[in-house]
Design a protein around this nucleic acid. Structure first.
Lengths: 144, 144
DNA sequence: AGGCATAATTTACTGAGGTAAACGCGGTTC
DNA sequence: GAACCGCGTTTACCTCAGTAAATTATGCCT
């Protein structure tokens, strides 16, 4: 069962680049990371990125193919898989698996824009609708 | 600037016990952790817990007082502080700071009970109400 | 051909988390 | 008072993330 592997801080940043670009060379990743880097922060060395890429490949998070004698890496897992795994982890570790508890904390302690709250309400409404639909289907199924 | 320190996996478990009990001795924590441990998992050694407690104290996550020649530990930070920090971290790392994105993932990939969805809607509604109240106050202020 | 540029690989070191045995010490027990 | 128990301390490993220089391989340019 290849459950999504655990990733470190920088490893995740690398994955972000890969998810955003579909696939990338080590050089592209290095440049991208250094471009995003906040001012004052020391740039990451290319060899560091290469090392981490090999570690990522070793644990099955990325794969590579050779193109023009250069390694082109691509992610093995979808971003959503990793994201969901990490979220479930956080939920279990600190919020007693209570999603509402987590969200309550977020809306209380993070600054949330009105638009974001709108989207949030939308998401909840949709989930509720989906659940109702499923309930109806089950009822109908059972009633005949 | 004592921002909440970063905690490891087992370190967090220790903190959970401390948060639940207000304060505890190393022995109590060891026993509690081993009680909660899933069957088949090897129990944690007492000295391991002691070591981690000292590391936690070194980084300012817990403090101790001596009572009857025995160390009694207690958490330095509130659980909510640590939880909020960790949540903000996850949000930044994987969800581009989008709370709705996070919640969308959760309701999609975790099984959410109808009650939990209810609470969730409640939380969002309350946040919205709070925001509207603030907006109204601002408008009233500006319109006269 | 010689050298430059770039890529991949090798090697090395630090720091943190986790794990736990070994050690020393004060108090209890027979 | 000798053996023992429980506690904190010391010491020691292992693993993994992160960091990056040094080395090797190879194509390309002049």
């Amino acid at each position: 069962m290849s459950s999504t592997p655990k990733l470190g801080r920088v490893q995740l940043q690398i994955m972000q680049v890969l998810w955003a670009q579909e696939s990338a060379t080590a050089r592209q990743i290095t440049d991208e990371l250094n471009r995003q880097k906040p001012v004052g922060a020391p740039p990451i060395a290319h060899s560091t990125v290469q090392t981490l890429l090999r570690k990522l490949e070793a644990k099955g998070a990325v794969s590579h193919r050779v193109e023009e004698r250069i390694f082109v890496f691509e992610p093995v897992h979808e971003q959503s898989e990793v994201a969901t795994g990490a979220a479930a982890d956080l939920l279990a570790r600190l919020f007693n698996r209570s999603i509402s508890g987590l969200v309550a904390h977020l809306v209380k302690h993070e600054k949330v824009s009105p638009e974001e709250l709108d989207r949030l309400r939308e998401v909840v409404a949709q989930a509720e609708a989906a659940q109702n639909a499923r309930a109806n289907a089950t009822t109908a199924e059972g009633s005949r």
